[in-house]
Simulated scan of single mutants.
Amino acid sequence: MTATLSLYNASVPGLIRMMDNLEHILRMGQTNAEDRGIDPSVFLTARLAPDMLGLVGQVQVATSIAKACPFRLAGTTPPVYDDQDNASFDDLYALIERTRSDISSVTREQIDGREAVEFNVKMGPVERSFTGISYSSGFTIPNVYFHITTVYNILRHNGVPLGKLDFFGGPSALG
């Protein structure tokens, strides 16, 4: 059987994988905080620069963008989460699990064939126009990677011994 690259294949499996990787990075951070006797809030509120979101905010944005993608590609409204309760590592794991579940709920049949379908997304005060493929490959995937990389960098900057393989979900994730 020959695999083909479809809009579904280019988005949904990778987004789920990115959520798995994000969870791995956070678990490394939580374990490191426990091992070093550091209050978890030190990591959860840390940021790379004063004008950037802290770790919790980075996770919230990564999950928000990731979960919206398949719904927008399918032409449906993405679920909205109440991000007020994300104050612990366990809260972030629950957010990631909910995101994975919502991403997985959109089917291949709902997405494939919609590569050229045009739609608008309101981003703050501005509305942007996309096609399915430009939204997935030009907006969603780069943004999710950016915010997950920032989580990785925040933890790394705070002494968590993360390596490149951890970004990909750990050594066992690559097979």
Rank of each mutant, 00 (worst) to 15 (best):
M18K: 01
M19A: 15
S11K: 12
R17L: 15
H24Q: 08
Q30C: 06
L22K: 09
P13R: 03
N9F: 13
E23G: 10
D20Y: 03
S6P: 04
Q30V: 14
S11W: 10
S6C: 04
N9H: 14
Q30R: 07
L5Y: 07
T31P: 06
A10H: 00
H24S: 06
M18D: 08
A10P: 13
M18L: 14
L5D: 09
L26P: 07
M19G: 05
N21Q: 05
E23Q: 10
Q30K: 06
N9Q: 15
L26A: 04
A10R: 08
T31E: 07
N21Y: 09
R27E: 12
N21P: 09
R17C: 15
E23T: 02
R27A: 15
L26I: 00
L15P: 03
M28E: 14
D20T: 04
I16V: 14
I25T: 11
A33M: 12
A33F: 09
L15D: 11
A33S: 07
A10Q: 06
L5R: 04
L5M: 13
E23V: 01
E23I: 03
Q30H: 08
E34M: 14
S6F: 11
T31L: 10
D35N: 07
L5S: 08
M28Y: 05
D20K: 01
S6R: 02
V12A: 07
N32Y: 12
E34S: 07
L15V: 11
N21S: 03
N21E: 09
D20H: 04
L26C: 01
L15A: 13
E34D: 12
N9T: 13
T31Y: 04
M19H: 00
P13M: 10
P13V: 06
G14R: 12
D20W: 02
H24A: 10
I25E: 08
Q30Y: 03
P13F: 04
P13G: 06
H24M: 06
L26N: 00
T31N: 08
S6V: 05
A33H: 12
G14H: 15
L26T: 00
M28H: 00
L7A: 02
L22A: 09
R17W: 15
N32H: 13
Q30F: 14
P13T: 02
E23Y: 03
V12C: 02
D35E: 06
R27I: 15
I16E: 13
M28G: 10
L26M: 01
N32C: 15
V12Y: 04
N32V: 13
E23K: 03
S11T: 11
M19C: 13
S11R: 02
I25L: 10
I16T: 12
G14V: 13
V12R: 02
M28L: 14
L15R: 06
N21I: 09
A33E: 10
V12T: 06
E23W: 11
